[in-house]
Simulated assay, not measured.
Amino acid sequence: MTQLELREILSPNHDARPPGQAVDILLLHYTGMKSAQAAIDRLVDPTAKVSAHYLIEENGTAWRLVPEERRAWHAGISFWAGARDINARSIGIELVNPGHEFGYRPFPPAQMASLEALAKDILARHPIPPRRVLGHSDVAPQRKEDPGELFDWAGLARRGIGLWPRAGAAARSWSLAELQAGLGRFGYEVPDHGELDAATRTVLIAFQRHFRPARIDGTPDEESAGILADLLDQIG
């Protein structure tokens, strides 16, 4: 595993976590900007009012921007498993990548190696279960796409970071209401009325982007239901 050396450029954009609040989510983003420097400049700009705890460049260079004990401002309007102040309970890592707007591309091995080292270091300090290693699009599916379908969630899970469906997960013939209930149980904010509305389709797209990146169409199909059933079985 890569031995990580952290550089530091501190952002003023943070505040205190609520008293007694444990960190129980690791939230991964892409920067979605044209360059690493543009992203760093924005994350340390006091007028931007955004930040993250860490940033990792494509060459693997890693930066600490906000101390972990402070609440960085990276999740925005978000939700997971009943919680809305995701910033209060998470550590945010920004991965330099132009994103879907400026030329989305795979995350290089050096960047992923640094992420693995940093994530394992974070997980050693905080009680974050695999099911709560998430992407920005998981907690804000109506607004965000990152880190996106090219991010190697499967490879990260093989290295002990995050959750991934087991090979051969059986397809399930679930009703839409059952699928919505399963997505809600897993943590997503999703309607429960049994109708395929725009909000439900967007959540399905976020789920597929994370757990079935080969086909992202928002269709409530049996394969998606089977993957979700397997994940729910893993978390108990």
Rank of each mutant, 00 (worst) to 15 (best):
T31Q: 08
A88Y: 06
G32K: 02
W153Q: 04
V44P: 04
E116I: 14
V190T: 08
A39M: 08
E222K: 13
S90H: 00
A157E: 06
I93Y: 00
D221L: 05
K49H: 14
V23N: 04
P127S: 10
G160N: 05
G184C: 11
P220Q: 05
F207H: 04
Q234D: 06
A167Y: 08
S11C: 09
A39I: 06
Q3T: 14
R84I: 11
F151Q: 00
L27D: 00
V133E: 05
D146F: 14
A83M: 12
Y54E: 03
F79N: 01
E149Q: 12
L115K: 00
E145C: 12
V44Q: 04
I128K: 03
E8H: 13
L176A: 07
Q142D: 11
H74F: 15
L179T: 04
G92Y: 02
M112N: 03
L176T: 08
R89K: 15
A181E: 11
H136Y: 09
L176G: 02
R42M: 13
H53L: 06
A39R: 03
P141T: 06
A117G: 12
E145T: 15
P220S: 04
L65F: 05
D121S: 14
R125L: 10
G160T: 07
Q180V: 01
R84M: 11
D45H: 06
D230H: 08
H53P: 03
L6T: 07
P141I: 02
D152A: 08
G103Q: 10
L118N: 02
L118S: 00
L10A: 12
R215M: 13
A75K: 01
P12R: 08
L176I: 11
A169H: 10
R143N: 14
E94N: 13
P18H: 09
R185D: 10
Q111G: 05
H210D: 12
V23G: 00
I91Q: 01
D197L: 07
V23E: 05
R201N: 09
V139Y: 01
R125M: 12
L115W: 03
G236I: 10
W153H: 07
G20M: 07
L27G: 04
A83T: 14
Q234N: 06
L6G: 03
I40T: 08
I216E: 04
F107E: 01
R132E: 09
S11V: 03
W174C: 09
D85N: 15
E223T: 15
A199T: 13
G182V: 07
L163M: 11
D230V: 10
H100S: 15
E57H: 12
K120P: 04
A38S: 12
R215N: 13
G32H: 02
T61H: 12
L95R: 03
V203P: 00
R64T: 07
P98D: 07
Q3A: 15
R132S: 08
E116N: 11
H136T: 03
I25F: 07
P213E: 03
E57S: 07
I128P: 00
Q208A: 02
Y188D: 04
V133S: 02
I227R: 01
N59E: 13
R132M: 10
L115P: 01
E57R: 05
N97G: 06
R125H: 14
A83S: 15
Q21V: 12
F102T: 09
A110N: 10
A52H: 02
P46S: 09
R132D: 07
G148D: 01
D221F: 04
V139H: 02
G162S: 01
L115D: 01
M112E: 03
Q142L: 13
L118G: 00
M33S: 05
A48F: 11
D41N: 14
